[in-house]
């Protein structure tokens, strides 16, 4: 269970203060697929980085399975990001001089998994996202955008996270590939019972998710949370 209460994040630049996330509260049950929509600059990415403990809120709390992650110390924060969260970015953000397998192995290395286990899991994850054997040793530069995002999904799943945070994961892909990526995420979330929160501009995709949150100028638009069986 992910519970967000009165979450607020403001940025000071000079005299002006921008409140990117303004007093947001919501809950997402475990294993649900939630989407966040909203205009550019409405605070979607800011909200996501707060949920992923990449950033600290100005006020409010985020509780994951009853534990307030905003009160964690640096060391525990790193462990939280490493073990509980999987990130997927719009720009894939793979390490360019590491092969697909090595990229997937990276989070497991930080989690302290032995090399043999890392390799085994990385290979099986890449197979799950539809990689053939000869593609696994390729570096990101020799993979298409869709293939790179598959590697990113495999990397996000590596440490069996409770929560996957995806910021416009299909933003750089054509709609067909984008849909395939989303379906893939959906299936994996189901099979691994992972909560997914994804930012998207694609309303068709958003419509397929369990819940959709609409952000408007840092605020959660009223009535945006819909229940789905």
């Amino acid at each position: 269970m992910l519970q967000v209460t009165n979450l607020k994040r403001s940025f000071k630049s000079g005299d002006t203060t921008v409140t990117a996330v303004n007093d947001i509260s919501f809950t997402v049950p475990n294993g649900q697929f939630a989407s966040i929509v909203g205009r550019s600059g409405s605070g979607k990415s800011t909200l996501l980085s707060l949920l992923g403990a990449l950033d600290k809120p100005t006020s409010g709390s985020i509780s994951v399975d009853g534990k307030d992650i905003t009160k964690l110390h640096d060391h525990a924060l790193i462990a939280y990001r490493c073990e509980k969260i999987g990130f997927i970015f719009q720009g894939y953000n793979l390490v360019p001089n590491l092969t697909a397998v090595e990229n997937v192995m990276l989070p497991m290395e930080f989690a302290g998994l032995a090399k043999a286990q890392r390799l085994e899991r990385a290979l099986s994850l890449l197979k799950q996202v539809g990689f053939s054997d000869d593609q696994m040793d390729r570096k990101p530069g020799k993979l298409s955008g869709g293939q790179q995002q598959r590697v990113a999904i495999a990397r996000a799943l590596a440490n069996k996270p409770k929560l996957i945070l995806a910021d416009e994961p299909t933003g750089n892909l054509d709609s067909t590939t984008g849909k395939m990526i989303f379906d893939l995420l959906h299936d994996l979330a189901r099979s691994e019972n992972t909560t997914i929160i994804a930012v998207t501009h694609d309303l068709e995709i958003a419509g397929k998710t369990d819940t959709t949150f609409r952000l408007d100028d840092g605020k959660l638009a009223k009535g945006s949370q819909k229940g789905k069986a």
């Binding site: 990449l54 790193i78 490493c82 073990e83 720009g91 990276l106 930080f110 989690a111």
Partner: peptide, 16 residues
């Protein structure tokens, strides 16, 4: 910069 950010996001400590 970005790559370092990614490493941090996926669980690398500053020290590593």
């Amino acid at each position: 910069r970005r790559e370092i950010g990614v490493l941090k996001a996926i669980g690398a400590s500053n020290l590593k």
